[in-house]
Amino acid sequence: MLETEVPEPSPRNRTTLLKLRARQCRYVTSDSGSEAIFCGGQTKEGSSWCPWHRQLVYTKPSSSGAKPGRGFIVPKLA
């Protein structure tokens, strides 16, 4: 499990793009070539990802001098 105790979403919620509804996770769990499959777990207001996938996608800025940018680590340019 990841740093915090966030439960992994159930595979039963997985769905296709055309079947996604509001407040369903848009994290792509597989791409079989013809059709992407999305997590479909419940999201919090204003988020595209469920708590499980959100903590996978977003990282904390490191103290190594990398510049943080909108939740993602942006490497320094040489």
Rank of each mutant, 00 (worst) to 15 (best):
P7L: 11
V57G: 02
R23Y: 14
P7Q: 10
I73Q: 13
S30R: 06
R23F: 14
K67R: 15
S30I: 00
T59G: 06
R26Y: 04
D31M: 01
G40Q: 12
R14N: 11
G69P: 02
R21H: 12
R12Q: 13
S64L: 02
W52D: 04
P51S: 14
W52V: 00
S48I: 12
K67G: 04
G65N: 03
F38A: 05
S63E: 04
D31S: 06
N13V: 01
S32D: 09
E35N: 05
F72C: 07
T16I: 07
E45Q: 13
Y27C: 05
K19P: 03
D31G: 02
Q42A: 13
R70W: 12
T4I: 01
Y58M: 15
P51A: 12
S64C: 03
T29L: 00
N13R: 12
R54P: 06
G46I: 15
A66I: 08
T4A: 01
K44Y: 07
R23K: 14
L56R: 11
V28T: 03
V57L: 14
K67P: 03
R14K: 14
K67V: 13
Q24I: 02
E5G: 00
S32K: 11
R14W: 08
T59N: 12
G33V: 05
S30F: 00
G71W: 11
E5F: 00
A36Y: 04
K67I: 14
S34N: 09
S30G: 02
K67S: 08
L17W: 08
Q24L: 06
Q55S: 10
F72W: 15
L18R: 09
A22T: 08
T15I: 07
T16E: 06
F38T: 05
G41Q: 09
S48T: 14
S48N: 12
V6W: 05
T43Q: 13
E8S: 03
L20D: 00
G69K: 11
W52T: 00
T4N: 03
R14S: 05
G65W: 04
P75Q: 07
L18S: 07
S10T: 11
S47W: 14
S63P: 00
P61K: 01
E3C: 01
F38Q: 12
C25P: 10
H53F: 04
M1L: 03
G69W: 09
T16W: 01
T15D: 05
E35V: 07
P75H: 04
P75T: 00
I37E: 02
L56Y: 03
T43C: 15
P75D: 04
K60D: 07
S30K: 06
P68C: 06
L56P: 03
E3L: 06
S30Q: 06
K44T: 10
R12W: 05
A78W: 13
T59W: 12
L17P: 00
M1C: 02
R26W: 14
K44P: 05
T4R: 02
P11M: 08
V28P: 00
G71T: 08
K19T: 07
S10G: 12
S34I: 06
G33F: 01
S47Y: 15
R12I: 09
P11Q: 13
S64A: 02
R12G: 04
G40C: 15
S32R: 13
P75N: 05
R54C: 05
G65K: 08
N13Y: 01
L77W: 11
R12N: 11
Y27H: 06
E5T: 01
T15M: 12
A36N: 10
S32Q: 10
A78H: 15
S10P: 15
W52I: 02
L18E: 09
P68G: 04
